[in-house]
Simulated scan of single mutants.
Amino acid sequence: MTLEISIKLVPDKIFWKNSVKEVILPTLSGQMGILTNHIPVLTGLDTGLLLVRDASSSNWVTFVVTGGFALVNENKITILVNEAEFGSDVNVQEAEEAYLASKVALESNSDVTRKFELNSQFKKARARFQLVQSSKNIG
C-alpha cells in the first residue's frame, strides 16, 4: 500500500504529485514521519527539508519548503506551502554563500522587525545548506 502525496503552492498550483512509501515532514515541533495508515492529522510546517521515499524505486526525493500545512487522511497527504524547491535544483555554491551571508546578517542586526525577516531568510538558507551538506556526505 502507498501514500498519495500532493504538494501545492499557494494559492492553488500543484508542484508535485506522486505515490510514495514514506514522508518526513518538517513540522513546527520537529520532524514527523508518515507511513501508510497513519492517523488523520493536520500540522503546521516549518521551513525545512521535506523528505519523500518514492513508491516505485525506494529512492528519497528531497524538497526545501518554506512554511505551510500538511493534512494526512486516508493514505493521502496534502501539503500546502508558500514555496517549494526540488533538492536536486539547489546549487551548492549558492546555498553555502546564502547560508553564511544570512547567518552574519541575522547575528549582526538588532532591529526586532528586521530580525524577524532575516530569521525567515536564514531558515530557508539553512535548509538549503543542510541539503547540500547531506548530499556531500552521501556522495
Rank of each mutant, 00 (worst) to 15 (best):
K136H: 15
A70M: 13
W60T: 10
T78K: 10
T62Y: 03
L9Q: 06
L50M: 02
K123D: 06
Y99D: 13
I5V: 10
K124N: 07
V64I: 13
V52T: 11
K17S: 13
I14M: 14
L25P: 05
N109I: 10
P11L: 11
N18S: 10
K103C: 01
K136G: 04
L50Q: 02
V65C: 03
T43R: 02
P26G: 02
D12P: 07
S110F: 03
S6F: 00
V112K: 08
V81S: 07
L49S: 01
E22M: 14
L71E: 12
I138P: 09
I79N: 11
V81R: 04
Y99C: 15
Y99T: 12
T113G: 08
V20T: 01
Q130C: 13
L45H: 06
L118D: 10
T47C: 03
L80Q: 08
A95D: 11
N73M: 08
S57K: 11
A55M: 03
V23K: 01
K103E: 10
A125V: 05
K124M: 06
D89K: 00
W60I: 12
A125R: 01
K21V: 01
A125D: 07
V52C: 09
G48Q: 04
S102K: 00
G48I: 08
T27I: 04
V41T: 12
T62C: 04
F122L: 05
E97Y: 02
K76N: 15
I138M: 03
N75E: 03
V41G: 09
K8D: 00
V64K: 05
F69G: 04
E96K: 07
A98I: 08
A125M: 02
N82A: 14
N75P: 02
Q121G: 14
E96G: 01
A127Q: 05
G44S: 04
P40H: 03
Q121P: 00
M32R: 15
